[in-house]
Amino acid sequence: MTLPQATFLILSATALLSSVMVITRRNVVHSAIWLIVALLSVGGIYLVLQAEFLFAVQIILYVGGIMVLFLFVLLLVNVDVAMRQALFSRQWGVALGTAILLLAELVYGLWRGQAQPAIAAAPASGVSPGNTQAVGMALYQKYMLPVELASLLLLVAMVGAVIMTQKRFE
């Protein structure tokens, strides 16, 4: 087993384990911590795949930004009440069905994938321009329109959120 393989295995195991922890913890803050761990290990997997830009974005945006806000909100709400509530709602039957469906889909995909040729190797990094530039080119040239549309959508959502809080405080 090579070093990258071992790293991958460790990281994915961590990701799986912490994901399970996220949904089983009673304390929401603990859940959030495990979610951070999961996100970090996924980020690590990106790094193993030499997608260091994706890794950096994962860390900065998800771990460093979104999860901080997440925790921020969690600290504001009443954690004690949340701890006394039931952990799983009664629709667990539906959830189980969905999970099985998803699992089947995944297995099918893997099985089908065996026949396909291997995914092309990631562009070698380490030297400039590297894949960061490639991502930039793709985002702002090839997929310019979708990116702009997505950002517009986010802007609308943001403005909406601001307006909603404003009304709340009147």
Partner: peptide, 9 residues
């Protein structure tokens, strides 16, 4: 700790 800013309690 007990309340949220949003609740404005």
């Amino acid at each position: 700790t007990e309340t949220t800013f949003l609740d404005a309690n």
